[in-house]
Amino acid sequence: MDTNNNKPVKKMMLILSKATIDNVYACFILANGARMEGIESEIFFTFFGLEAINKEKLDHLHVATVGNPAMHMPTMLGGLPGMEALATKMMKNEMEKLDIPPIDEFLEILSASGTKLWACKLAMDMFHLGKESLIDDLDGVLTVGDFYKRAEGEGTHLLFI
């Protein structure tokens, strides 16, 4: 492998800034997939991404039916009451069929796999969130500077979601 100068990926630093289900799952699957390949992974939950580790919110995340062209649904229709819940329920059913765990279980799997889970300090202050609102598996609260510090070393990649 070294003969053709390939530099292996050693660590994935993922930044999750959104809490629509598709974004959260993309982030979790990438973090878990890294660990499964023997690559380190860490997630920095910032802005709306904090909802994914907020104990009271994480079971109620939705897919966006408005402003999401990939839903192939007229905006007016997507805005009807209950539409997001319905679309979310359908998506969750499909995911369960593929053995994709629900958010809470996925967080447990990530933590047990060695993925580090960090909350963004500034976003917590902005949303008036205390540590007690966040999951018990959280590894800590970081500033952006702390997060970059953790990204040091060869083979680290950062990904913003």
Partner: peptide, 13 residues
């Protein structure tokens, strides 16, 4: 990994 974790044989950790 989810199945293995639920197998009762070994935890994910």
């Amino acid at each position: 990994i989810r199945k293995v974790g639920k197998s009762g044989v070994v935890s994910i950790k």
